[in-house]
Write a protein that binds this DNA or RNA. Structure first.
Lengths: 190, 190
DNA sequence: TTGCTCCTCACGTCACGTGAGGTGGC
DNA sequence: TTGCTCCTCACGTCACGTGAGGTGGC
């Protein structure tokens, strides 16, 4: 019965799905329950293995039935797609570290301000221009000058809260990214 | 009209979709056509920017309308998910390089053989055991000994075909991976 | 009249998740 | 009778893609 097949880490619903799409059709007993024979279990293991390599259910069916395209080609395409996804993920990661890093030193920027920052980053999709950096630095200096000691302590507290959810690796990456994005004059300030 | 909005790189259908889900509802003219005012275009730019940061349409709507959760938190979660996806992609890439690398020296393995290899890799999800390595080496030696010079030339040709679709970087990574996976005795053979 | 863009349904995608409602053997 | 597992519909997910069939202004 399907409960034992669930030992493979799949849900019953997944097995129903494989049955419906014709990927794995076990026999039925008198009560209509699915009975997975040894050959079914072996096929299921192959399905799980191929699925773990990123193949779609259609590709898996074609491979196991010998009707699909060459598995070797399939795997090479998978490799290409995976590398593209990794690259895209890294670009997104860099942009996210960019905003989060730029957000760090400011006090509670409103969503509206963050959206504007993201818009600017998207529009020029480069680092900041010197003029913008100077403007940001100027605003920041003015803000810091106007803060009372109490407000400074609050800001430090909030900054710690903002980074407490991050792993050490994330923090390191964020700092490295900020270092690349911003000139040295910004770094030893805080 | 929507044609100008298509200058943002979106399809007309996407704008229809944003309209239907209430993310961006332009005014209509007498003929029922959508008319995007300046404010609509600005909002659309913000939508595109936030979408580029991995936010869902629901999250974008909540952010722009000020009703959603904190954008700062959203971006941190995005960062975590992105890093997880990158890590998962790298693991998949490593496994793909593993099979493709192991497949290299063999002549046209059938899909069935590749499936078995993938199954083994999945089952133990480690490198090969010494016994398996010895067995594979034995089979390989026997096979090479039985080949005629003509067959050897064919094999070399097929091997070149198999790798011709790969970039230099992919080849380098593949070789490095094979070096880590297999003992030295396998390397200078070919 | 001929093109062109625009419109509205409405189904399809991918691999299932999630109830809703019912059945057979302990 | 009470639980338990099993079953079959059938809709929902996410961001649109893709025809099908019709309309208004040049």
């Amino acid at each position: 019965v399907g409960e034992l097949a669930q030992a493979t880490g799949l849900t019953i619903r997944a097995l129903h799905h494989y049955d419906r799409v014709g990927l794995l059709t076990p026999t039925r007993n008198a009560g209509g329950h699915r009975c997975y024979a040894g050959s079914d279990v072996r096929r299921l293991h192959q399905i799980v293995a191929l699925r773990g390599f990123g193949l779609s259910l259609t590709e898996i069916a074609g491979t196991l039935d010998g009707t699909g395209p060459d598995l070797h080609d399939l795997l090479r395409r998978q490799l290409e797609q995976t590398q593209e996804r990794i690259a895209a993920g890294r670009r997104l990661q860099a942009r996210l570290l960019g905003v989060l890093g730029a957000l760090g030193p400011r006090d509670q920027p409103s969503a509206q301000e963050i959206v504007e920052l993201i818009e600017e980053m998207t529009n020029m999709d480069q680092a900041f221009t010197p003029q913008q950096l100077e403007q940001m630095a100027q605003q920041r200096r003015e803000m810091m000058d106007r803060l009372t000691p109490q407000e400074l302590a609050d800001l430090q507290l909030r900054r710690e809260e903002a980074t407490s959810g991050l792993s050490p690796d994330q923090l390191t990456e964020m700092r490295q990214h900020r270092r690349r994005l911003l000139p040295d004059s910004w770094l030893p300030d805080s």
